[in-house]
Nucleic acid binder design. Structure first.
Lengths: 138, 138
DNA sequence: CATTAAATGCACTTTCATTGCATATTATTT
DNA sequence: AAATAATATGCAATGAAAGTGCATTTAATG
C-alpha cells in the first residue's frame, strides 16, 4: 500500500482506480476545483461517479467544500491535520475576480467574530474577493 | 408620490404595481429571502418578472445579495444609507442551521482581514452559521 | 395624445445537483 | 481460492435554480 492507499484505508474509503486518479488530480491542483473541472479532466468517466467520489471525500474529510460566492461549489484538499469542522482551524478563502480561481489561504485564520447575545456560532465562512497575486502582477 | 415611489424615482426605477408589491414584501420580511420565497408569495406573477425585478433592485442598490452557503442566493433590503459596495459598510450575515433563515447583522461589521502580499481585496463576504436567537430559545 | 423606452409574460435553454437501479468491482468469510 | 456480502460504478432520468429572446403591454415624456 502506498501513501494514498494508506490514507484511504485509514478513513474507511475503498481503494478504487477512479478514486486514486481523482485524488491525484486534486493534489496536483493548487486551486479549489468545481465538479465541472473534474469532469473536464476525466472526460471518459461518468459524471455521477465523479460526483459521488467527491461527496465521499467530503464526508471522510479528505476535501472541504468552499462557497466562494460564484454560485458553484468548489472543493479543495484538506491539509494534513486539517480539521475543517473545528472552529479554530477555519481559514479564509480568496476568490479572484479576474481569473475566477479560488484558493485556500490556510495560513490566514478567520479572526474572532462577535455575534449578538442568544446566537450560537457553529461554523464561519469567510471569502475575500479581489485580485490575486498572479493577476495583480506582484 | 409616497415614500416608496420617491425612493424608486430617486434611483431611476420605474414605478410599477409589481415592483411596489415586491418592495413591500421585502420590507415586511425580516430575514433574507430567496427568489423562490418571492415566487411563493406571488404565485400569480411570472417568475421572470420577479427575477428581473430583484435584479433591478440589486443593480440600483435597493437590495443586496447574500451568499449564505446554502447554495441559493438570498436577498435583503439595504438599510437606509447602506452602501453595500463600500468596504467599511460590510456587515456580517448569520445563517441558522435550524430554521434555515438568514439575517443581516447590520450592527456587526466585518473586522479587518489580513491577506497575503500581492493580493488586493475588493469585497468581503462573511457568514456565520449556527443557531439563531429564536431557535436557541434565548 | 402620440411617441418612445422600458417592463412584463411566455416559452425555452442551460447548468449544476441529485437519485434509482442494474451491473461490476472490491472486501470478507468460509 | 471460491463464495458471499457490501459497496462502487455507469446509465438514464429528474429536479431546481438561473438566465435569455422575443412579442406584447405598460409607463414616462414631450
Amino acid at each position: 500500500m502506498n501513501e494514498i492507499e494508506k490514507l484511504f484505508a485509514s478513513k474507511d474509503i475503498r481503494i478504487t482506480a477512479m478514486r486514486l486518479l481523482i485524488y491525484k488530480f486534486l493534489v496536483q491542483k493548487e486551486t479549489a476545483v468545481t465538479l465541472s473541472d473534474i469532469e473536464n479532466a476525466f472526460e471518459r468517466a461518468d459524471r455521477t461517479t465523479l460526483y459521488r467520489t467527491i461527496k465521499t471525500f467530503e464526508e471522510k474529510a479528505i476535501v472541504h467544500q468552499i462557497d466562494d460566492g460564484t454560485g458553484i461549489t468548489k472543493y479543495a484538499l484538506c491539509e494534513q491535520g486539517c480539521n475543517c469542522e473545528i472552529e479554530t482551524d477555519l481559514h479564509l478563502h480568496f476568490h479572484c475576480n479576474n481569473c475566477n480561481e479560488t484558493v485556500c489561504l490556510t495560513e490566514y485564520k478567520i479572526p474572532h467574530i462577535n455575534i449578538p447575545e442568544g446566537y450560537m456560532a457553529e461554523d464561519v465562512n469567510l471569502v475575500v474577493k479581489g485580485i490575486c497575486e498572479k493577476c495583480s502582477g506582484h
